[in-house]
Amino acid sequence: MKITGYRCLRTFHDWRRPVGDVNGVIASGLTDVPLVLLETDEGVTGIGMGSHADVDRLFPAIEGEDPRAAPALYDRMLAAVFKTGHGGATFGGLGTLDSAIWDLKAKLAGEPLWRLLGARDRFVPGYASGLDIALDDTELSGFYTSMAEHGFTSGKLKGGRDVDADAARLDILADALRRNTAKPALMIDANESWNLKQAIRYVTAMEQRVDLTWVEEPLRRWDAAGHARLSRSVKAAVATGENLTGLEQYAPLFEHGAVDIVQAGAVWGVTHFLRVAAAAHSRNLPISPVGLSANAAVAHAASSVPNHLTAEVQDLGTPFGVTLDQHCADGGIVLGDGPGAGIEVDEDVITAGNNDGSWAVPAGPHVRPQRAGLSLVSEAHEFPK
């Protein structure tokens, strides 16, 4: 078995609502979903979701190689971009190829990826996360009510501008989730929008009104000393790590005792997640993957590690032309029995019905506002619909 080629395909996800965070919003609710289809000399195809960045530069490192050597091929790709570095956008392409390789490895074994990775249980506990900052109160209630109908008992609000508004909106989340538990777990995600003292003041004020389970990405991702000070200053756990592109970037957080909930982005692939989970486990820390709604391979990986806490589930739908062998029930993701990561792609449907959509729109959540972290007064903000 040898890897012989690849094809890049692009589809879209229709969230059916505006999505975004404190940094910006995609009002259309349409975002692009890059796919990589990894070909072999035996006709088996591996599928990865995430990014097309630098795939052309990374592919020679795995061309002609046996996909069953997945971790070694990951290291070959890291080595191939040694001089320029694997961080940033390049890490997205690397993660997508890595997920496709793991899909191939499991398909060759004739097993679902969760079984190949040694999981005992196909169930992945999760929490609801609506990317919901642009939703009005009625829409917010509707989203979390629909997630509660699938058994979710915890939810994460996008916020960070106005303490009173965020506290009131967390009450809406709690009301929706109480159909499953008397005390829902409530989290808030500030998406790196605060400085240290802002974060301490904001979270302290929130905690007078809400029992926060964690505060996510309160500071810039590299600020290990700041995260450590914040964790010591508030009762809520501090969660961060989803935007770190490489295991080595976690070292300062670990050394400073700066993270209570270790996060890893699903778009960065299976091997990255497994290695971060192992590093966290060695420090008695839980791991929580971010963005599992359509990144099926990392959902399988999450089921296999001993310190998985909960996974972010952002939507119940799937990208256009993509079928996933999984479903949400009992407050998490139930993985299927099909071989591989359970991803099926209808190329003809995607090609015929392709639609424009981009996550990285100019005023969207991937663009940091010029004055982020520099405000003296927290103010509510109206996002476009």
Score class of each variant (00 low, 15 high):
I350R: 08
A341P: 03
G340P: 01
R275A: 10
L285A: 00
T310S: 15
H327L: 01
V334M: 04
G332N: 12
N295H: 15
G342K: 04
A341N: 10
E344I: 00
T323G: 04
L324N: 06
D325M: 02
V270I: 13
D346E: 09
I287S: 06
N295Y: 13
A341R: 00
A266S: 10
P339D: 09
P365T: 03
P365N: 13
V349P: 00
G317H: 01
W359G: 03
G321D: 03
W359P: 00
G336S: 06
A266E: 10
R283G: 06
S303Q: 08
A266N: 05
E347M: 07
D356F: 15
A296G: 03
A341I: 00
L335D: 12
T323R: 15
H366K: 14
G331C: 02
R283P: 05
P306C: 04
W359L: 15
R283M: 11
A352R: 15
T318Y: 04
H300W: 11
N355M: 13
D337R: 06
G317Y: 00
W268I: 03
G340I: 05
V322T: 12
Q314S: 14
P362V: 01
N355D: 01
V276E: 11
V345A: 03
D325H: 00
S282C: 11
R275H: 13
L274I: 04
P286L: 05
G265M: 09
G291T: 01
H300A: 08
C328Q: 13
G317N: 03
V345G: 00
G353H: 14
G265W: 08
H366F: 14
A296Q: 15
A329W: 02
Q314H: 14
Q326H: 10
D325K: 03
V322H: 14
T318E: 08
G338F: 02
